[in-house]
Write a protein that binds this DNA or RNA. Structure first.
Lengths: 247, 247
DNA sequence: GCGGCGACCTTACCTATGTTAATGTCGGAC
DNA sequence: GTCCGACATTAACATAGGTAAGGTCGCCGC
């Protein structure tokens, strides 16, 4: 069985056996499953748990009064929703499943226990939440400055690299469940233009996207058209070059 | 002397006298001043402190290789830069002064001391960082879904309400130091279009903007054109209706 | 087997916003 | 007092991307 959270956190720091057991235990209790398109939590509800995505893809989204919808973030396997959300009185956005998902609910008590007894996990979770914030900032840059082609390319690079960190890719391919409508809601463009843009990336041999599978034959080339700089993902562990025996 | 941080945190919770003294003490040590346009910290540097803006406006920004610049967030008096940034190896963006600013540097040690001895402050700082994340999400929605007029109106509403929470407004006016170029870099539009959009808001009597002063004669009306919903700022304190004696 | 539906693709046309460039205004340096 | 730079404004024109409409295909329920 894959443990995407552990795999991801180890990009940041080494975890002890006890740390890993703790994380497995946390992820095992209170697992809920949702069908594709189902809401995990809805705007206005009181948040009671930290959600951890174990399997599948989910997203944050927000809907304006007049129906326009914006996808604000994607949650991939191993992603945590919001450390400490329970401080807030109510959700200001919704979280919905994109594919069928398995989610672990982490209670306030379990979270506090972890923070006290496992300083390395605490550090690693801080890191993961700082990275999540950095991703959100990069999306701001993406929407504000890049044109449609760059924007799409950037999103694909990011998702691919994040999936890789969670151990959800093989070679240069990954599952890719997003519809063109969802891509449009993410990138702030119409489905028509999403289609045009994907065609353009295909025509340049930058991507192969078919049957919910994405292949990126030359990631560097795609990064180049996206003006993609992976530094915001903070995946380079302190002293990583010393750990030749990994990956 | 104003204490915008204390004022803001009290929107979330009541602080004890000891809490307030702690915050004053923290804000007093290691104060640095920067001129307008100067960088407080630059992309690539190692973050060593949490920065607290005491006076003036600053911003996060990021520059693409080809020179395009996106302003990612504004820091107003009382805003903290990033809890726990020192976990990261290097900054993935820069923070620059917009006006002359006074910044308090909070060391890792001072931060830890506060976390241990002052649980209410800890809670309040968590709240402030969750709100900062919510603001970043709302900017994603803003750039993705709203058109130029809505986008500008939304930004103005947000800034005004945040300044109000920090005690930096009087009646329906506030200082407003942003140039049209900066507004463009924030909202992902050209300066020409920023100008057109401001003219339109002025013509509808939604704003008065002159000599670096912004007046919003009817905030509700501006919120209506922006499709602005203040819930993401989480300014309504638990049981606020019980505290009739405030504000 | 048929009707319906959702994902996807396509075309033709239209508009919000960008680009370029000229002009205006104001405050500071000398 | 004049020169200069920063900022604001305006106009004329260009284009990226939106809208509307329709078509194809595969899948599911009955």
């Amino acid at each position: 069985m894959r443990r995407p959270l552990i795999r991801k956190l180890e990009k940041f720091t080494r975890l002890s056996q006890a740390d890993k057991e703790m994380l497995v235990r946390i992820a095992a209790q209170r697992v809920r499953r949702f069908a594709a398109r189902e809401d995990i939590i809805h705007e206005g509800e009181k948040p009671e748990f930290i959600n951890l995505i174990n399997e599948g893809w989910a997203c944050r989204y927000k809907t304006l009064e007049d129906g326009r919808r914006q996808i604000i973030a994607f949650f991939l396997p191993g992603d945590l929703c919001d450390l400490n959300v329970f401080i807030l009185k109510e959700m200001d956005h919704s979280i919905g499943a994109i594919t069928p998902v398995a989610v672990s609910e982490i209670s306030r008590a379990a979270f506090d226990e972890m923070m006290i007894g496992h300083p390395r996990i605490t550090q690693a979770l801080w890191w993961e939440s700082l990275v999540a914030a950095a991703i959100q900032r990069e999306w701001t840059v993406n929407l504000g400055q890049r044109d449609a082609l760059e924007r799409m390319a950037h999103l694909l690079c990011e998702l691919f690299i994040r999936l890789e960190a969670a151990g959800c890719t093989s070679d240069s391919s990954c599952e890719f469940p997003l519809t063109q409508t969802e891509l449009g809601e993410t990138l702030g463009m119409s489905t028509v233009h999403v289609n045009r843009t994907l065609q353009e990336l295909r025509a340049s041999n930058l991507i192969v996207l078919k049957d919910r599978t994405l292949t990126i034959p030359n990631l560097q080339a795609l990064q180049d058209v996206a003006l993609f700089n992976p530094n915001y993902l903070h995946l380079d562990r302190e002293g990583r070059h010393l750990d030749a025996n990994e990956e």
